[in-house]
Amino acid sequence: MNPLYNELEDSLGYRFGDRALLGRAMTRFAAAKEEGQGDDHSMDALATLGDAVIDVVVLEHLIAGGMESKGELSLTKMNMVNMTVLRRLAESISLDQYVTWGKGESGQEIWRSGRVLAECMEAVCGAAYLDGGTEAVRKILIHLAFFL
């Protein structure tokens, strides 16, 4: 396990009970394939899960704050949760430094692409959800000042 994960957990404001989930969230599909690992060793499924969980946590936050209109909820969530916002969150904690990149990705510095770091942030949230439920994801988002 990456010795820098303690530092990453400090940046996230969340300690994983199952560090293997964090390791998976930080492993790109290309890197897993290069290491002879299957899909279950890469972040892809966790990113999909994280995308959905972030939406749920944000909607819970908005409803708890008194927002009830379906249109207003949808628009506000759409403005709060997008690739630009998620990428900025990832950049704020230098998430790219913790990711295991494939050789080609590393050479091309693929994390400079708009979507890639956002997907990494989604994967972290997906892993946190599996580790500690929506409360874990909420804790991370609050720690990263997502709701300000």
Rank of each mutant, 00 (worst) to 15 (best):
G23V: 09
M67V: 15
L49K: 05
L21P: 06
L21S: 08
S42P: 04
E105H: 06
G23E: 15
T76G: 06
L59M: 15
G126H: 02
M83I: 00
A128P: 08
T100L: 10
W101Q: 03
Y14W: 10
I93G: 03
H61Q: 14
Q37S: 08
V116P: 00
E35Y: 07
N6Y: 13
E34H: 07
G66N: 11
L8A: 11
E60H: 11
E135L: 10
K33V: 14
I142K: 14
E105C: 08
N6M: 10
I93V: 15
K103Q: 13
L89W: 00
L62T: 03
L62H: 04
D10V: 14
V53D: 00
M67A: 07
S69P: 02
G13Y: 11
C125H: 06
T134Q: 06
R28Q: 13
G38W: 05
V99S: 02
E7M: 10
L86N: 00
E72R: 15
A52P: 00
G17E: 14
M43G: 02
T76Y: 10
C120E: 03
G71S: 12
S74L: 12
L4I: 10
H61S: 12
E122V: 01
L73E: 13
A64S: 15
G36D: 10
I63D: 05
G65T: 05
L62Q: 04
Y5W: 11
G23Q: 11
F29V: 07
I54T: 05
L75F: 10
I63T: 15
A47T: 03
L21H: 07
L59R: 15
S69W: 01
N79W: 07
V57F: 04
E91L: 13
K139N: 09
